[in-house]
Amino acid sequence: MKILEINNSRKHFGDLEVLKDISLSVEKNQVVSIIGPSGSGKSTLLRCATLLETLDGGDLIYLGDYAAKADENGNAVYAAPEELKKIKMNFGLVFQNFNLFPHYSVLKNVMEAPVLVQKRNKDEVKEEAMELLRKMGLEDKADAYPFQLSGGQQQRVSIARALAMKPNILFFDEPTSALDPELTGEILKVIKDLAAEHMTMVIVTHEMAFARDVSDYIIFMDGGVIVEEGTPDQVINHPTQERTKLFLSRFKND
């Protein structure tokens, strides 16, 4: 079952074409990593998929529901706001800079959206939120505020916040790029645990060894196009494109 489908997506900022005819699909339980140099368009792709940016052209489909549908000229036409609001509940996003709400306790950060947006029962949500925090090793931090936590802890809270919405697919936008190297490992472990539980995920990352270990499928992007894609073994261990080889050679010391 396809959770996410993007067909022939296009996006430009001014004169710069950031996405040129990108297509990808993500099956249920699949972990897809997107790698590539800065400015390759991978973050823009993620931002378009999560409706933070709008596509100029192409389809964006979650579980068969069109968030955007290409018209006869290929231009993306977005669904009505109510429809988009429903579609939005399919995905969660973990940001590079966490973007926790600083004036809320850890528990409130995790609990508010399910109660406020999804109108779920507060006691049930609280129980689930505490369970998620336990899973993240943060049950003793429920009443703490984000500024009192390390970067790694903050990122785990933001993962818990995304999971509390019970998304069908979880996006990660360079989840370890704002962290010290020694804190990176704890986030990568959390993501690996989620993969082991068959969470459907799309991860934009610079951690090549991690991408190889955790992913079912890897996409290498450069200059707004998909240069190479396939299994981790194909893309990371046996790349066929010169551009991919050059990019990966910089990470050989991993």
Partner: peptide, 24 residues
């Protein structure tokens, strides 16, 4: 990023303003 986090979590514009932005 505060607006974006709220947007992805499905907060409406007024919820975002009154609950997330205004207190800060």
């Amino acid at each position: 990023g505060q607006y974006e986090a709220a947007q992805v979590l499905g907060y409406s514009k007024s919820q975002t303003f009154f609950r997330i932005v205004l207190p800060q």
